[in-house]
């Protein structure tokens, strides 16, 4: 039996108290314990970015983070971006610019885009491309993703 640790953290604005196995990833906790399946498992080894979440405002691969490391921190997942006022402007831009096809990578892509928008604001196209390099998408060819982020933050050539 794996040892467990009690943690508490803020998930999408709500305080959560959970007891997690010490070797459980944050991704597994979110998906399997807390039912937050918006965050996707696609490689489990930090290569594709589908599991990207924001922890204290910083984007990271939740598959590489221990659940226990969430203790005392503020976690934002794709589910937390949508508020009573509706979709986040980034989510809306992804919809309206046609950036979503199968959509499996999009929760991670949108969280990374959100991180870029929050921390960098207006950026060059090259900075945008570099900023998204950890997020693999097999459907879109990324072009419509660039269009969506550009619509929110403004991107210069």
């Amino acid at each position: 039996m794996t040892a467990k640790v009690d943690i508490s953290f803020t998930l999408n604005g709500h305080l959560k108290k959970v007891s997690v196995p010490i070797d459980m990833s944050a991704l597994t906790m979110l998906r399997d314990m807390l039912g937050m399946t918006g965050t996707k498992l696609a490689c489990g080894e930090g290569e594709c970015g589908a599991c990207t979440i924001l922890v204290d405002g910083v984007s990271l691969n939740s598959c590489l983070m221990y659940a226990a490391e969430c203790d005392g921190r503020t976690v934002l997942t794709i589910e937390g971006l949508r508020t009573a006022a509706g979709l986040d402007p980034m989510q809306k831009a992804f919809v309206e610019k046609g950036a979503i096809q199968c959509g499996y990578c999009m929760p991670g892509m949108i969280m990374q885009a959100k991180y870029l928008a929050d921390t960098k604001g207006k950026m060059t196209h090259e900075e945008l491309q570099r900023g998204l390099e950890g997020n693999v998408c097999r459907c879109t060819g990324y072009k419509k993703v660039f269009d969506a982020v550009a619509a929110v933050v403004g991107v210069t050539e």
Binding site: R31, M36, T37, G38, T39, K40, L41, T77, I78, E79, L81, R82, L87, Q91, K92, F94, V95, E96, G98, I100, Q101, G103, Y104, M106, P107, I110
Partner: peptide, 21 residues
């Protein structure tokens, strides 16, 4: 016209339950 996919809002918000979920 330029028409967004009808399922895009659910996919953009994590609401969509994929088979893997």
């Amino acid at each position: 016209q330029r028409v967004p996919k009808p399922d895009a809002p659910d996919k953009a918000t994590g609401r969509t339950t994929y088979i893997n979920d």
